[in-house]
């Protein structure tokens, strides 16, 4: 795990690809590599947790989340363009934010996490 930070960015790029479709107001998360099971791809609540806890999305945005095991793709579909843009911006910066959070967590910087909220476990 100690090499986690060093490898995380590359692994993220190797494992995940974001696609934007502004015309259809859809953001897609492509999970790459070996085929993942439904359990590994996750549930809707976990995707929302990722956006909120790691992406900093601090409002409840209306979106439809489709998780497709066959295509290994997670689609986030919006009715509202502003919402689409907000989440797109979150996804565009999410890796940098995750790296920052992990650096602080590895350093044992507990104070940083007091106000971060909680996962929907």
């Amino acid at each position: 795990m100690e090499r986690f930070i060093g490898n995380a960015k590359k692994l993220f790029e190797d494992s995940i690809e974001f696609q934007h479709n502004e015309k259809e107001l859809t953001l897609s998360i492509m999970v790459k590599g070996d085929k993942k099971s439904k359990e590994v791809l996750g549930e809707e609540a976990e995707i929302r947790d990722m956006l909120r806890m790691f992406g900093g999305l601090n409002e409840d945005i209306a979106m439809k989340i489709d998780i497709d095991e066959e295509s290994q793709k997670i689609d986030l579909k919006f009715q509202d363009k502003d919402n689409y843009i907000k989440v797109r911006d979150v996804l565009d910066n999410i890796m940098e934010r995750i790296m920052d959070i992990c650096y602080k967590a590895l350093a044992g910087d507990i104070s940083h996490f007091k106000d971060l909220g909680d996962f929907n476990d």
Binding site: M1, E2, R3, F4, A8, L11, F12, D14, S15, I16, V31, G33, K36, V40, L41, G42, E46, I47, D49, M50, F54, I94, I98, F119
Partner: peptide, 18 residues
Amino acid sequence: LRVPFRWMFKETLIQSPS
């Protein structure tokens, strides 16, 4: 693991060193 780490790492990530 949590999403998105579950997409990137094996479940043995917590074992250190790898």
